[in-house]
């Protein structure tokens, strides 16, 4: 395809001032709400209504909120476990789907991403309580998060494999490498960026997930998104803004880090 920059100006038709204005408004629509949350996290007022003055009071409140800190710890633990297992299983799935003409595995790995989250949440709840007799808690959430993260990792790994020259793997085999050696010395280093990106992506998805966590959580252990939900529903204080700002900072860092490893990801994370 031709580089747009090489084409004379007259072909750039769809960039009139009106279009630019609308695009700017859409960007504003995307960013203003988040900016308001951040600004009000530093606001010296109990109400999220108008700017009164600068304070770090809400961050201090957060620091002394043991329930919230425990929720953060639990969520980080869940995200570590879920992203580790999802990265291992998802990498295997991505490799298998790319290498063999499989029919069932792609459907099983990708369908959870394409359906409303509530369906997976509800069916897992029934399964845990009826079949596994599992006490709902951290483990049930980790397993649930792993289930939907596998597909994301598989997509990223498979996309990386599709852009690769398959013949180098065969060359390694021809030169006498065992399948394991060929994988370890040739395939693995090449797909490593995709694996890291997949791991960071599933970590982010796990920390952020509300719906599936909501259905598979037990009572007793506070989990970050649930804690935020309760605060929003029951009593909104700017402490929510403070934890939101910190969480945004964390996911932003992770996403940027992930895109460093695999630039194709930021272009279309939905597929």
């Amino acid at each position: 395809m031709k580089e747009i920059a090489d084409i004379p100006e007259k072909t750039m038709r769809h960039s009139s001032p009106l279009l630019r204005l609308i695009a700017m408004l859409v960007y504003a629509f995307l960013y203003i709400p988040l900016c308001i949350v951040i600004v009000f996290s530093f606001n010296d007022s109990k109400l999220n209504a108008e700017w009164v003055g600068f304070t770090l009071h809400w961050y201090q409140t957060l620091w002394h909120d043991h329930e919230m800190l425990l929720a953060v710890r639990n969520s980080l633990f869940i995200a570590c476990c879920a992203s580790t297992s999802a990265t291992i299983l998802g990498t295997m799935a991505g490799l298998a789907i790319h290498r063999y003409k499989l029919k069932v595995l792609p459907i099983l790995a990708f369908t959870p991403l394409a359906m409303p989250e509530i369906l997976l949440g509800v069916s897992l709840l029934l399964f845990y309580l009826q079949v596994l007799n599992l006490t709902l808690g951290l483990l049930s959430i980790i397993l649930a998060h792993t289930t939907f993260c596998i597909g994301f990792v598989a997509i990223i790994v498979r996309a990386r494999l599709q852009g690769m020259d398959e013949s180098i793997f065969e060359a390694a085999r021809d030169l006498g490498a065992t399948p394991w050696q060929a994988f370890y010395h040739v395939t693995l280093p090449l797909i490593k960026p995709a694996i890291i990106a997949g791991a960071l992506m599933s970590f982010t998805l796990s920390i952020d997930d509300f719906v599936i966590t909501f259905f598979t959580k037990g009572i007793g252990e506070p989990i970050l998104p649930i804690q935020i939900y309760t605060m929003i529903k029951v009593a909104v204080t700017p402490e929510v803004n403070a934890i939101s700002t910190l969480l945004m900072l964390l996911t932003l860092t992770l996403i940027i880090l992930a895109s460093r490893f695999d630039s194709s990801m930021l272009r279309d994370p939905s597929r």
């Binding site: 995307l30 960013y31 203003i32 709400p33 988040l34 308001i36 949350v37 009000f40 999220n48 982010t204 920390i207 952020d208 509300f210 998104p225 935020i228 939900y229 929003i232 909104v236 929510v240 939101s244 969480l247 945004m248 996911t251 932003l252 996403i255 930021l266 994370p269």
Partner: peptide
């Protein structure tokens, strides 16, 4: 476009509660 989408779902909904 993607960056705000990377922030927590609940936070994005909560932002509209304020607005």
């Amino acid at each position: 476009v993607v960056l705000p989408f990377a922030s927590n779902f609940l936070i994005r909904v909560y932002a509209w509660m304020i607005i």
